[in-house]
């Protein structure tokens, strides 16, 4: 687990220039302002979190960043280059990978082949060396896939089909597929839903271990403890806007966040603790 999984061509820039910048981004559906004027910067080598109640616009924001949803207004800059007019399929080649809120594995492919789909995206963008991964013999595993499988602790499951796996394991395959893309920006949409505490801790450790390669990660998660354990910086959303940001522990204690995100009941619970 010691070798950095993420290959970055420009690890030297880590820490300064933002990987992703959002300027006044909005996504409206008719009259519904799902995302309404969000500006933020994500730097390499850090883990960011987004919290907010259901319907606060977290997933729409991810969809907007990955270009699956069009922006109503605003700018999206990847490494300082505007990408808000780029086709979604071009983003993968530029180092953006994501997992989905629901498990989206191909039922007719094995775990290895599913993860290989992620590695397939590598050779395209020309960001990493062009390898012979397109024509693997059955049973063979390319280095990127083997690495992603090792990191998500899926060894022994390579030849299984998704339907044979538990929900938590399927989610790990999702993450492995995204890692296999060798991204510089990784968006994780509730990656640990359906996992137990041990698995969550593992994913949290995995995410933190990947920071060393300069990978920037954005985590959408309901599990507040997971947020506190994992993230360097947290944004809180409500009704499509940012209502607070900062260190995770501070944001969680912010009265506005507690009011909007968790409601009065939560505060009573928390006070009682």
């Amino acid at each position: 687990m010691s070798t950095p999984v993420v290959q970055t061509d420009d690890a030297g820039t880590a820490g300064t220039a933002p990987v992703l910048e959002l300027r006044d981004v909005a996504v409206h559906f008719g009259g519904v302002k799902a995302v309404d004027g969000i500006s933020l910067q994500l730097e390499p080598g850090r883990i960011y979190g987004i919290i907010g109640p259901n319907g606060s616009g977290k997933s729409t924001l991810i969809a907007g960043i990955t270009r699956l949803t069009g922006l109503t207004r605003g700018e999206l800059l990847l490494d300082g280059q505007p990408v808000h007019d780029v086709a979604p399929s071009r983003l993968a080649g530029r180092g953006v990978a994501r997992t989905f809120q629901t498990v989206r594995l191909l039922a007719d492919l094995t775990v290895r082949a599913n993860v290989q789909i992620g590695a397939d995206a590598r050779a395209d963008g020309g960001r990493s060396r062009r390898g012979p991964t397109g024509w693997l013999r059955p049973g063979a595993t390319s280095p990127a896939v083997a690495d992603a499988i090792a990191r998500t602790r899926l060894e022994g499951f390579e030849d299984h089909y998704p339907a044979e796996l538990s929900y938590g394991t399927q989610r790990r395959v999702e993450i492995a597929r995204a890692i296999a893309m060798g991204p510089r920006l990784l968006l994780l949409d509730e990656p640990t839903a359906g996992m137990n505490q041990t698995e969550r801790a593992e994913i949290s450790a995995l995410m933190r271990s990947m920071r060393t390669g300069g990978l920037c990660q954005l985590l959408v998660e309901h599990d507040v403890q997971m947020m506190i354990d994992t993230c360097d910086y947290v944004f809180a959303m409500n009704s499509g806007r940012l209502i607070a940001q900062g260190a995770p522990a501070e944001v969680v204690r912010d009265p506005a966040v507690q009011e909007a995100y968790l409601g009065r009941k939560w505060r009573e619970h928390a006070d009682g603790d």
């Binding site: 990955t66 270009r67 699956l68 086709a87 979604p88 399929s89 071009r90 983003l91 993968a92 080649g93 990978a97 994501r98 989905f100 989206r104 191909l106 039922a107 007719d108 492919l109 082949a113 290989q116 789909i117 992620g118 397939d120 995206a121 395209d124 963008g125 597929r177 893309m181």
Partner: peptide, 18 residues
């Protein structure tokens, strides 16, 4: 694999650079 992805999940395919 790409053909399979395009058929089963076009949105996923787009995210995978297809």
């Amino acid at each position: 694999r790409r053909v399979d992805t395009v058929r089963d999940d076009p949105e996923l395919a787009a995210s995978m650079g297809i």
